[in-house]
Design a protein around this nucleic acid. Structure first.
Lengths: 107, 107
DNA sequence: AATTTATATGAATATTTGTTCATACATTCA
DNA sequence: TGAATGTATGAACAAATATTCATATAAATT
């Protein structure tokens, strides 16, 4: 019965660790200037890759690479329109997380 | 007068970039499993270095290094009590940011 | 079909970053 | 004062990551 408790505790820790890792992974995505700029740009309106690239003055390649990261993390979504790909925020959580961080910065 | 506008725009971008960088720097700190674990541990109660080290099963040195990062970012504060240093969350923003990320994870 | 425009991607490189190990610093206690 | 305990820190190494460059893929237009 002690063993049972011990294993329960270990499971709990394991579960927590998974949550912690997920949290860290999420924040890691926000932890890059280029990606934060892209996300903030998309906060204002959806944009295609060229527009993001020009607006933020970042290489098209760099933008594409980072959009891939953002999409993999489910922070942005995309749809095709002819030759261009239009990107937008995946949901309101993204805005919420940005705002949350902003509040800490302005102190 | 056009020049004036241009420089205003440039200033605006510059200001924004600084904000973006600050945001990214903040999230970068949250973007590590060890640091998230430490912060979450301190969410429950203040702890000294040894306690954190044992609780999370992380080397004392690694904990100290990360506590330094967390303190530099004003996410934790510390006070001395005899031979030990007691660490706690710097303010409620930390809790808010963690909760904000959690909400996105649980989807 | 060939060309042009928009985007994605792989490889290479440089930089950043986290941990470990050894050791220094600080405080208490004998 | 010397020993013991708790914490901090520097150097070194390994791993992760962002950008660039070249090129591939995809859609539209002629």
């Amino acid at each position: 019965m002690e063993n049972e408790n011990v294993s329960k505790i270990k499971e709990a820790i394991l579960r927590n660790n998974e949550v912690f890792d997920a949290l860290a992974e999420l924040y890691k995505v926000f932890g890059d200037g280029t990606r934060v700029r892209i996300l903030c740009a998309l906060t204002q309106s959806e944009m295609n890759v060229s527009e993001i690239s020009e607006f933020l003055d970042i290489t098209q390649s760099a933008v594409s690479h980072q959009l891939r990261v953002l999409k993999t993390s489910s922070l942005v979504k995309s749809r095709r329109s002819g030759k261009t790909m239009i990107y937008s925020l995946a949901d309101e959580h993204v805005r919420a997380i940005i705002d949350c961080g902003m509040e800490h910065i302005v102190e």
